[in-house]
Write a protein that binds this DNA or RNA. Structure first.
Length: 350
DNA sequence: AACGCGGGGGA
DNA sequence: TCCCCAGCGTT
């Protein structure tokens, strides 16, 4: 066994995380769910979602048979909503192609939507002990530092090198422990900001630690200036309900409920929109907010429009009325939830 | 305010 | 095959 793997497994016994809700089960369904939620998302954020999700969808058959809207609603607030859609599709694929038994080998897992090479390996290692390498953000950071790998890990050539390295380090046994140990080391010791090298089992051998270069490794993503966009949203309120619109399946907030967008980028509401929605009432500008995505910054100007009578029919089939006291259960992205929560509790600052 | 994070899909 | 996209929490 590589010295790397041996030290990691020994370290994990006393210093790894052993109390996560998805540990202690070899059920690939549960492990799969946790791994999908953990993509791009920290453990502490995932835990309450994971618990709620399992209560509502205890097995793959239940998940596959449920409306995708229910899945989206339980995912609301977690981000990267394509994960939820893929999760639902994958559940149906398992029912169809695998007779309802969730696969536990990486070759089968990788054919399911939302599961790539690293996630397939993680699920397989945890549920069946298969000897396959993972390469998530934690592992990339650890390998770049310990072995002094130069270059941005998102770059193809660097990533290929990391995959080869990760495979060369695999132990012959204890794949589940080894895999968890890598994740734990990256998450609790070899962190991005201030790594705790004093507590690290690799410190003596680590290129970055020995040369004082933990800040330089792994190399940062090349900088790009991100664009700024602005949008105006209609907050049409009637009888304690608000008009919401189902977003298209892909793109920003894909599949979630959001507020209808008003054309124009200025700070005044276009005249035609006033006619269309407000039936002569004066729209009121609500406090604007700024939401930051990875690739752009979005300035949002919400306009409140109160209707005394609901329109005979909604303008678009994607529109529906959402009761303001049912926000908690709705599939809303974070900034929309913020606007509507503020609307219902004007005295709360959240 | 900038950064990091796995996989899908389009170029 | 490569590159762009996505939403939140952390720093």
């Amino acid at each position: 066994m590589s010295d790397f793997a041996r030290r990691l497994i020994d370290w994990h016994r006393d210093h790894g995380r052993h109390d996560l809700p998805w540990q202690g089960s070899r059920d690939p369904y549960r492990i799969w769910l946790s791994e999908i939620m953990l993509q791009q998302t920290q453990v502490s954020s995932v835990i309450p979602y994971y618990t709620r999700f399992l209560e509502r969808f205890p097995d793959v058959a239940t998940l596959a048979a449920s409306p995708v809207e229910d899945v989206m609603a339980l995912w609301s607030g977690l981000g990267y909503y394509a994960r939820a859609r893929n999760l639902h599709r994958a559940a149906q694929q398992v029912m169809q192609a695998h007779d309802g038994r969730f696969p536990d080998c990486s070759a089968s897992l990788i054919t399911l939507p939302g599961i790539g090479r690293s996630t397939a390996a993680a699920i397989a290692a945890f549920s069946s002990g298969e000897r396959v390498a993972i390469l998530d953000g934690n592992v990339k950071r650890v390998l770049c530092r310990v072995f002094g790998i130069e270059g941005f890990p998102g770059e193809k050539a660097v990533e290929n090198r990391l995959w080869t390295l990760a495979e060369s380090l695999l132990p012959d046994t204890e794949l589940g422990t080894y895999t968890q140990a890598q994740m734990d080391l990256g998450a609790t010791v070899c962190t991005r900001g201030k790594p705790a090298c004093m507590r690290c089992p690799m410190a003596e051998a680590c290129v970055a630690a020995r040369s004082g270069r933990t800040r330089e490794l792994p190399a940062a993503r090349p900088r790009k200036t991100i664009p700024r966009r602005s949008t105006q949203l209609a907050v049409v309120v009637c009888n304690g309900r608000v008009l919401v619109e189902r977003r298209p399946p892909s793109g920003i907030w894909g599949g979630l409920l959001a507020l209808p967008e008003l054309p124009g980028t200025g700070t005044t509401l276009p005249a035609w929109a006033i006619g269309e929605w407000s039936a002569g009432q004066t729209p009121v500008a609500l406090p604007p907010l700024t939401h930051t995505f990875t690739h752009f910054v979005l300035d949002i100007q919400p306009w409140r429009i109160d209707l005394t009578h609901p329109p005979a029919q909604l303008a678009e089939p994607a529109h529906q009325w959402l009761a303001l006291d049912q926000l908690a259960d709705a599939a809303l992205p974070t900034p929309i939830r913020q606007i509507l929560t503020r609307l219902q509790h004007p005295d709360l600052f959240d």
